[in-house]
């Protein structure tokens, strides 16, 4: 029993699987975006090569950066990875059977830790990026939470695994509540900082935003956190809205479809200014509230 749990948490559908899939989604996104832009694009395993290269580089810590500079990226990565371990993947949860609130906690904490990395840098560009990131959070948490509540109420449970099974037996929640699903998708784009929401990293304006000062293994951690975030949100999407999954195959095709839609947004959209982001996300929050009202009344 114990060995099965450990294997499940560490290998499949645990850490190894999660990490592998994160790389896959990221590579898929870059390749597809390149093709849409009439380029050839990097090979699918490019993100893996990037991370490996970064691990070998010198990890520089600026003298004037605050203490958190060294550990926030690590905490962010671990948090998001834990959130990944708590979401049902292809029908089974890698680690335990907790409710959605624990999952959300790790997700939000990890995102905050990422922006705290920006705040603990000594660079004004990082601070501006981190501020924008936090403001963006205020924007998208509203539609995100609203959409999740709709899904919870529709499935009648706060345990992700049960919501997953509910969908498998009763059909896609997004078909009954499309507005909530739309709100969720918009908040997914914002959470993973995909255009039009790539404000915190607006590199035309603020170099690299909150991760300007990072190099080496810590930058690798930040990049990994990004990729993991995409994976976690796609899994949440499948579990809460897009029909759940019990087989690896359905998990794969559904997640690639969502990633493809996200790539479309990345390629087509220009960047929003941060104040538009707030307004835009909140509009979708209210759109999601319509579905919430429907389910409550």
């Amino acid at each position: 029993m114990a060995i099965e749990t450990i294997l499940s948490a560490l290998v499949y559908p645990g850490l190894v699987f999660i990490v592998f899939m994160s790389f896959l989604y990221s590579g898929f996104m870059r390749k597809v975006a390149a093709r849409m832009q009439h380029r050839i694009g990097p090979p699918l395993w490019q993100p893996l090569l990037d991370v490996i290269k970064l691990m070998g580089k010198e990890d520089i810590r600026p003298e004037q950066s605050k203490m958190g500079f060294t550990f926030w990226p690590f905490i962010a990565m671990v948090s998001i990875a834990t959130a990944g371990l708590l979401t049902p993947i292809a029908g089974s949860v890698p680690l335990g059977n907790s409710d959605v609130f624990v999952l959300l906690y790790f997700l939000i904490f990890g995102t905050l830790a990422l922006y705290l990395s920006g705040f603990s840098s000594s660079n004004p560009f990082s601070v501006v990026g981190a501020v924008r990131g936090v403001v963006q959070m205020i924007g998208y948490e509203f539609p995100f939470v609203v959409s999740l509540i709709v899904s919870i109420l529709a499935a009648g449970s706060v345990f992700p695994i049960e919501i997953n099974n509910f969908q498998v037996y009763n059909g896609w929640i997004s078909l009954s509540f499309p507005l909530a699903a739309l709100a969720f998708f918009v908040s997914l784009l914002a959470k993973v900082e995909i255009p039009p929401f790539h404000v915190p990293e607006a590199h035309q304006e603020i170099v690299s935003g909150y991760y300007t000062e990072y190099t080496g293994s810590r930058l690798a951690m930040i990049i990994m956190t990004h990729m993991l975030k995409l994976f976690v949100l796609v899994s949440i999407g499948i579990v809460f809205f897009f029909g759940g999954s019990v087989s690896l195959f359905s998990f794969l095709w559904k997640s690639l479809a969502i990633v493809f839609l996200a790539t479309l947004s990345r390629v087509v959209m220009a960047r929003m200014r941060i104040d538009y982001v707030l307004r835009f996300c909140w509009i979708f929050g209210f759109v999601g509230l319509i579905d919430l009202a429907r389910i409550l009344l």
């Binding site: 832009q37 380029r39 255009p195 607006a202 035309q204 959209m269 220009a270 960047r271």
Partner: peptide, 13 residues
């Protein structure tokens, strides 16, 4: 201009 607006695809095209 496309690039500054965040529209990478416009830049590529």
């Amino acid at each position: 201009m496309a690039y500054e607006l965040g529209l990478d695809t416009g830049f590529m095209y």
